[in-house]
Design a binder for these strands. Structure first.
Length: 815
DNA sequence: ATAGGGTTAG
């Protein structure tokens, strides 16, 4: 009998592998080999002494069986002979699987099966079904088989072999009368969705439904997700109806999970849709369950930025006697903040306060952020002080927003003071706190303070991250300290924080804004990989520094498209400068050339720019270009053009354009009509406006009143004035000024007070003017003083009126 | 248990 040691076998295998079908060569050869095993001989403290091993197929099985108390050993043994000998038999695999399962090592089983599946039938010499059969022959109980099937489905799913996964799933059910663990369905479906095979998800689901298998809530969520991706509204309806009518073992738990799952998968609207019938049919009857569901839904809606829906659900839940918790309030406030509806965020906050809810530091910092987002930094700081006085426990986030606000107000010293107060209270600062402070210092040019803070942070053992380095490097550059900025880059690199293009951009833009154009260019040139973001930054830097020529020149020589925001920045800068408007137009041409679609607002902006400098011809030219490109100008563009024609008194053109926009289905709004009527009060637009459902506003009424006044038709003017009030359109100070100017003897003071309309400079000027004209200089001066007293800042006009009045007075007294 | 803060970019 020949005995082949394993080490030798590996050489043999190398030779054999050259043959076309190695397997059939080796197995018979091996079966002739013999083995002698003594358990104690080759097991040494958990490792296997392979060298002493000699084996054949039956021997392998014997060895494996002897390892049933050590699954890891069994696994590594199998792996070893996989690599060295002929392919192990299906029994060998089955044995190992039994051992691994017996020890409950599910994860090990999973990875083992993934590898096994990956090999393919040819690679292992038997099919997966053969393996299952082999296991079935060894094992009486179904439990093991089910577990292996489950793991197989998972393995196939992970390898995106969906057909096979489905096949095993249903085959198991049909041959054993029991399905694999239903949880594996969510793994499978998850994978299918990730690969875009939503059709398969739905197919599998309906088949499972047909078989009457119990499916968990998470799987339902995935099916809904798949149906939504398929845009299959009917399917969703069918599913929900099916769900509501089905008997579930523990409906409340199930539905809560389902609702939660929907909310976690961007389908909070559907969750809300489901919540209501569930409440009505008393499935969610327990107040605490209903509360959980409602809170989830509201938070989900907020996360999806469906803030209006969230508010609706919020009101609904209050109506049903459920108190929103602090997390719900927080979500709604954040939702409003993120959608830039700051007043609404404050509304909710005030509502909380009114209800006597305790404000915590999270809500506090949210609301402070709201102030900052409005640009009201001092308001933020005031509010912070208020919180502090109310003894609301404040944490480092809250403090951070507060001293960030101070920094942005230019009060770095106070910011640092507040920071010291925080640390004094025992609140440990983090890297973000330091970043905020350093940013604030750099903003005020206090770079050495920034350095000190960096050193202080280092001393406290905090590890600087990419952001703080970026802020520091950018801040130094912005203060013209190019050397130091570059050193910071080196420093961070040395410390294992690799600068990114963001870092580079901050330095680039900083240097340019600081006027260090050469340094910026040199830095740009020094970059190893120049990304288009870097090019964009050069352009943006030049824009911010007001170097439009450089910005434009740099931009125009780039052969590839840049991120869209750059075009916008450059374009806006160019449009704002009288002499660069044609360059702005060049930019649009260039975008078209590069295949970048300009934002629609850019067209309007350019036309607006031409109109602003009264070059209606250029505006019109560009307008026509749009037409040839089949781009329909929007309402604003039309209106601004019409306005320009009106201003230049080319009324025919204005009117033609007006007809043109209606022909193209661009609906005029109240501004359009205001513009037209302002220059041509003879037009009768009443019926048309009604047809378009355009309601006149204060401005429209005011210009109409003004027109009639100018035509000396005071009666009509006054009738309009009454009419607007009848329609509950509140006159503003301009309306009153117009009226007063044409009927100086009117006393409008009382009415204005009633409407809470405060007189402004113009109004006072008209009053002063009139008093001067009738020669009551004293009264005129009195009105002037009254104006100052009421806090209205005079511009040149009231002075001019007074002086003119004095002149008139002098002349009069000479007569 | 679930929430909020610093650069840029979008």
């Amino acid at each position: 009998m020949r005995v082949i040691p394993i080490s030798l076998l590996s050489h043999v295998r190398g030779l054999i592998r050259r043959g076309p079908s190695s397997r059939w060569y080796v197995v018979p050869a091996l079966s002739r080999t013999n083995i002698t095993i003594s358990h104690s001989e080759h097991v040494k403290e958990g490792t296997f002494d392979y060298k002493s091993l000699e084996l054949n197929e039956i021997g392998v099985l014997r060895v494996l069986n002897s390892m049933k108390d050590d699954p890891y050993l069994a696994l590594s043994f199998l792996k070893r002979i996989e690599g060295n000998v002929a392919l192990p038999s299906v029994q060998a695999y089955a044995t190992v699987i039994r051992i691994v399962c017996g020890w409950g090592l599910d994860q090990k089983l999973d990875t083992f099966l993934v590898e096994l599946v990956r090999k393919g039938d040819a690679g292992r010499g038997f099919s997966v079904m053969e393996l299952l059969n082999a296991i079935g022959e060894m094992e009486q109980s179904l439990v093991l088989l089910i577990r292996v099937s489950t793991a197989l489905v998972k393995a196939y799913a992970n390898l995106e072999l969906f057909e096979e996964a489905i096949d095993i799933f249903f085959r198991t059910y049909h041959s054993l009368g029991r399905a694999p663990d239903i949880k594996v369905l969510s793994v499978l479906m998850n994978r299918m969705i990730a690969s875009g095979r939503t059709d398969m998800v739905v197919g599998v689901f309906w088949e499972i439904e047909r078989l009457g298998l119990y499916v968990d809530a998470h799987t339902y969520v995935l099916v809904v997700q798949a149906l939504c991706r398929n845009d299959d509204k009917e399917g969703v309806d069918k599913l929900l109806i099916r769900l509501l009518n089905s008997e579930t073992r523990n409906p409340c738990v199930f539905y809560l999970k389902f609702i939660e799952g929907l909310c976690l998968n961007q389908m909070a609207s559907m969750a809300y849709l489901l919540l209501q019938p569930l409440r009505e049919v008393n499935i969610l009857v327990d107040m605490s369950d209903l509360g959980i569901a409602y809170r989830r839904v509201v938070r989900g809606l907020c996360n999806e930025m469906r803030i209006e829906d969230a508010e609706k659900a919020f009101l609904d839940m209050e109506e049903h006697g459920i108190d929103p918790d602090v997390y719900v309030y927080s979500a709604i406030i954040e939702g409003h903040r993120k959608t830039m509806n700051i007043p609404k965020a404050f509304d909710i906050f005030n509502k909380m306060v009114e209800k006597g809810k305790r404000i915590n530091c999270v809500i506090g910092s949210s609301i402070l952020q709201c102030c900052c987002q409005m640009g009201n930094f001092s308001g933020a700081y005031d509010l912070f002080k208020e919180f502090r006085e109310l003894n609301i426990p404040l944490d480092r986030v809250c403090y951070n927003v507060a001293f960030d606000a101070l920094g942005k107000l230019g009060k770095v010293e106070e910011a640092i003071e507040l920071f010291r107060e925080m640390t004094g209270k025992g609140i440990a600062p983090d890297v973000i706190n330091y970043t905020t402070l350093i940013g604030g210092c750099c903003l005020q040019g206090k770079c050495s303070d920034a350095f000190d803070l960096m050193i202080e942070m280092d001393g406290s053992g905090k590890t600087p991250d990419i952001v703080i380095y970026n802020v520091l490097a950018g801040g130094l550059a912005r203060n013209g300290l190019s050397q130091e900025a570059l050193e910071t880059l080196k420093l961070m690199e040395d410390r294992g924080v690799k600068p990114t293009y963001v870092t580079h951009n901050m330095v680039i833009e900083g240097l340019i804004v600081a006027g260090k154009l050469d340094k910026a260019e040199a830095f740009y040139e020094s970059l190893e990989h120049k990304s288009r973001e870097n090019d964009a930054s050069m352009v943006k830097g030049y824009c911010e520094a007001g170097c439009l020529d450089q910005a434009f020149e740099r931009f125009i020589r780039l052969e590839f498209p840049l991120p869209k925001s750059v075009y916008f920045t450059l374009f806006t800068s160019l449009c704002a400068e009288k002499n660069y408007i044609s360059k702005a137009q060049d930019l649009l041409d260039r975008m078209w050339e590069l295949g970048v679609k300009p934002e629609k607002s850019m067209y309007g902006k350019l036309i607006g720019a031409w109109c602003r400098v009264n070059n209606v011809r250029k505006a019109r030219q560009f307008f026509e270009i749009l037409v040839t490109k089949e781009i329909i100008p929007d309402l604003f563009t039309y209106t601004i053009m019409i306005n320009t024609y009106c201003r230049l008194n080319e009324l025919k053109q204005a009117y033609a354009l007006f007809q043109d926009m209606k022909r193209r289905d661009v609906k005029p709004d109240v501004v359009t009509y205001t513009v037209l009527l302002n220059s041509n009060p003879e037009l009768d637009m009443k019926r048309e406006m009604e047809a378009f459902d355009v309601k006149p506003d204060v401005v429209l009424y005011t210009i109409m009143i003004n027109r009639y006044c100018q035509l000396n038709d005071v009666k009509k003017a006054y009738a309009l004035f009454k009419d607007m009030k009848r329609r509950e359109i509140v006159p503003d100070v301009v309306t009153y000024t117009v009226l007063l100017k044409n009927n100086p003897e009117l006393d409008l003071t009382r009415e204005m007070k009633a409407f809470d309309v405060k007189p402004d400079v113009f109004y006072y000027t008209v009053l002063i003017d009139w008093q001067c004209k009738i020669g009551d200089l004293k009264e005129a001066k009195g009105i002037f003083d009254q104006m100052i007293e009421s806090g209205v800042d005079p511009d040149a006009a009231p002075y001019t009126a007074l002086i003119a009045g004095m002149g008139l007075y002098v002349r009069r007294s000479h007569l």
